[in-house]
């Protein structure tokens, strides 16, 4: 399964949820869905913005973990 490591990257970049949501152009509620791994899909445009704001690659935000 795909794990979203957004909180790790946010801690590294010392950025708050509110600030990130504003810079990416999504609501705090949607950012929270992403952070808590409740999302079903992520748009390339959102991923692109996240990588741009956090100055990282998609691999830093997303990880694959084998289902048990």
């Amino acid at each position: 399964m795909i794990i979203v490591n957004l909180d790790v990257m946010m801690a590294k970049r010392k950025i708050s949820s509110q600030e990130l949501a504003e810079k990416v152009g999504i609501t705090s509620a949607n950012l929270s869905i992403l952070k808590t791994n409740k999302g079903k899909a992520i748009r390339f445009s959102t991923l692109d913005k996240l990588c741009e704001v956090l100055n990282c690659t998609p691999g830093d935000i997303l990880a694959y973990e084998k289902r048990e």
């Binding site: 949607n30 869905i33 999302g39 079903k40 899909a41 992520i42």
Partner: peptide
């Protein structure tokens, strides 16, 4: 609908 809503 749920899938669409949970696509960020």
């Amino acid at each position: 609908k749920e899938e669409n809503e949970l696509t960020i």
